[in-house]
Design a protein around this nucleic acid. Sequence first.
DNA 1: ACACCTACCTGCCGGC
DNA 2: TGCCGGCAGGTAGGTG
Length: 286
Amino acid sequence: MPELPEVETVRRGLEPVLAGARLSHVRQNRPDLRFPFPERFADRLDGAAVEAVNRRAKYLLMPLSIGETWVTHLGMTGRFTLDGRQLGEFEEPAPIGEKHEHMSLCATGPTGRTRVGFADARRFGFMGLVPTDRVEAHPWFAGLGPEPLGNAFSAAHLKTAFEGRRQNIKVSLLDQRIVAGLGNIYVCEALWRAKISPLKPAGKVSAARLETLTAAIRDVLTEAIAAGGSTLKDFANAEGGQGYFQHRFDAYGREGEACGREDGGVIRRVVQGGRSTFYCPACQRA
DNA sequence: ACACCTACCTGCCGGC
DNA sequence: TGCCGGCAGGTAGGTG
């Protein structure tokens, strides 16, 4: 799944085609993704104009001319296609008309007419229609922590959020109520950069380390966005954009490899909260 | 409230 | 070659 950098990459791909476009020929191919589609979803989208393509955490938000905002979460395998070309490819590109395309539509806007598809093999993604003036109050958004690239995110914020917290810092950083948009890859990468042990209780990380961590999070996300996100399952002959940040992982997915700091450490994989954590026991000791 | 566990779903990969 | 277990970028809902 796409984490914040991948969702942002998708947002930037959709924006030129969808912002200002009118939707038509909306087709919904099954009743649900992770959750049921909204009532009369296709009918409500049909004829609406998209006013903007925004992102909050890992959600895409498209306010529409009908006073509702079309919300999409990509889950683990969700992806949009434009004229069959994939946007923010996280896996090998699938043929046009693939079996996992669950909705599609036609967008007519400044750049002409484009076919937009949404595919999601695992169906952990979901879509909603939320009144635009009440998006912030919706359960999906009400509890979210600050954007890690925004002004509200700071070492002081983490200090407060981690106060008295005995849970390890790795799992804590995945908690979207504390900071919104990080996922398994970028948490591992940020902790490696900050030389913080993922096993350390969140409440016991020093203020100085939280300062380093805050910068590491901003840096890794910024660099990943600039690289177009990460594409995990590599492929040779891509059409359309592919992320390149996966080539710059220092920890994620590198179990058994030498740590890039050349301190003799070897990247280890452990399981925390049911998910893999990659880290260097030699340099991530703080 | 917090910490922890499980479920949701399909595809791919490595081992036997 | 085929089957089987393990693993995958996320979130929600339940439990003590």
